[in-house]
Computed example of a mutant assay.
Amino acid sequence: MQADTRADVFGDIFVVFLGLGTLVGVVVVAYTLYNAYKYRDTDQPKDDSLPTLGELPTGGKGGKKLFLSFGISAIVVISLVIWTYGMLLYVEDPQDEFEQDPIEVDVEGNGFAWHFEYENGVEATNTLNVPADQPVAIEVTSGDVWHTFGISDLRVKADAIPGEYDETWFMAEEAGAEHEIKCYELCGDFHSNMVGTVNVMEQDEFETWLDDQLTLDITIETEEGEAVTNVTDEDVQVELVHQNNDEYDADLEYTRDASDFEDGSVTIDEIEQGGEYELTITFEDDEFETIEDTIGITSPAGETYTIGDTAEDSDDDANGNDNETDDEADDANNDGGEN
């Protein structure tokens, strides 16, 4: 059995309160109208046993009716409070009811925008993609001032306070639907523009989208800006390593060689975790200078690198510069000696 969504829970509470309130209202109004009709003023002589104005009743069943009405009311109210409290406890922590593990997303309000980070390091701004019929656990905070993250359609609201973290969850049922995200805390001049969108996808579509976010395209080109189409002749080696590789169970290290290139480009698309990566591109026999770079991969990324002088030419240039510097120093010393 699929766990209820937050909207289901609050919808059930609303229906119960509305139904019970309507029932009580109908009973009270009907009983009032009945007594108004029963004890209406007529021309018939009044019963001498009835109390007159200002006289307290001395007997009858009025007391029993009063206590009975109070008893029924107490039972109804207490039962309603207990049931509602139980439903709200489910809203606060429904983990045991979930058939699937929740998707965890960190939410940060900053710069009048909503920033999202998924478990695998994928990041997005103002657009939150989620799968249908799967719980989403969010942890909300702020990077600047007080905000309130809210999705009214899904009955979600959480305070975003700098230095604090508010946890909540939601579940969207209809794939293809879009829900508006708003800030419900007056946070500054652009408060009304602090909006976003929840896109609900099919499970397979969401998993494909999440995997496609962690890809890196690498292109090697000449100084003239042309792709190196004969890179396979250069015997190139590409190595991509996560900066914090030791912190993960999986080995976040990926390699490519010349056979993987096509028209000077290569794609690394099996990246499992986003974050900072160290990229190293080396060429056989040091034909070209080794390329080293640090790349942040939290969404589809592409990098282009230019190969120019060979490593040997660069060393010669460096040596030539050193010799030129030495000659200039000797000239300066000679001039000093002449003075």
Rank of each mutant, 00 (worst) to 15 (best):
E234R: 10
N230Y: 12
E224T: 14
E234N: 04
G264R: 07
E239A: 12
V228I: 14
Q237M: 12
D233H: 05
N244Y: 11
L240G: 00
I220Q: 06
L252R: 00
D246I: 05
V241G: 00
G225M: 09
T219A: 08
V231C: 05
Q243W: 02
E226V: 11
F261S: 05
Q243Y: 06
E247I: 10
H242C: 01
I218S: 01
T215K: 15
F261Y: 04
D246F: 13
A258H: 10
N230A: 12
S259V: 05
V238Q: 03
V241S: 02
G225K: 07
N244M: 12
N230Q: 13
E262Y: 04
N245L: 11
L216K: 03
L252A: 03
V236H: 02
V231S: 10
V231H: 08
A250G: 01
T229K: 13
L216D: 02
S265M: 14
D251T: 10
E223F: 00
Y248N: 08
N244K: 13
R256E: 12
D233Q: 14
D263R: 05
A250K: 15
V238H: 06
H242W: 06
E239Q: 08
D263F: 08
V238A: 00
D251A: 11
Q243H: 07
D233G: 15
T255A: 10
V236E: 04
F261V: 05
G225T: 09
Q243D: 14
T232K: 15
E223C: 00
T255N: 12
E239I: 01
Y254H: 06
A258R: 04
E239C: 01
R256A: 15
S259M: 06
D217H: 06
E221D: 01
G225L: 12
S259F: 07
D246L: 06
D217Y: 04
V231I: 15
A258V: 03
E221A: 05
N245E: 15
F261K: 01
G225E: 13
V238S: 01
A227S: 14
E234W: 09
T222P: 06
H242R: 04
S259W: 13
T215A: 12
D249A: 07
T219Q: 08
R256F: 05
E226I: 10
N245P: 01
E226G: 05
E224Y: 10
A258K: 11
D235V: 02
I220P: 03
E234S: 06
D249K: 08
Y254W: 10
A227C: 00
V236W: 07
G264L: 07
V228A: 06
T232A: 10
D233S: 12
V231T: 08
A227W: 00
D246Q: 12
D249I: 08
T222A: 07
Y254F: 11
L240W: 02
Q243S: 11
N244F: 10
T219N: 01
E221F: 04
A250V: 11
D233K: 11
N245I: 15
A250L: 13
N245H: 08
V228W: 01
N245D: 15
V228S: 05
Y254S: 05
D257I: 03
D217P: 03
T232P: 00
A227I: 02
D260S: 12
E223V: 12
N230S: 14
D251C: 02
V241W: 01
E224I: 03
D260A: 14
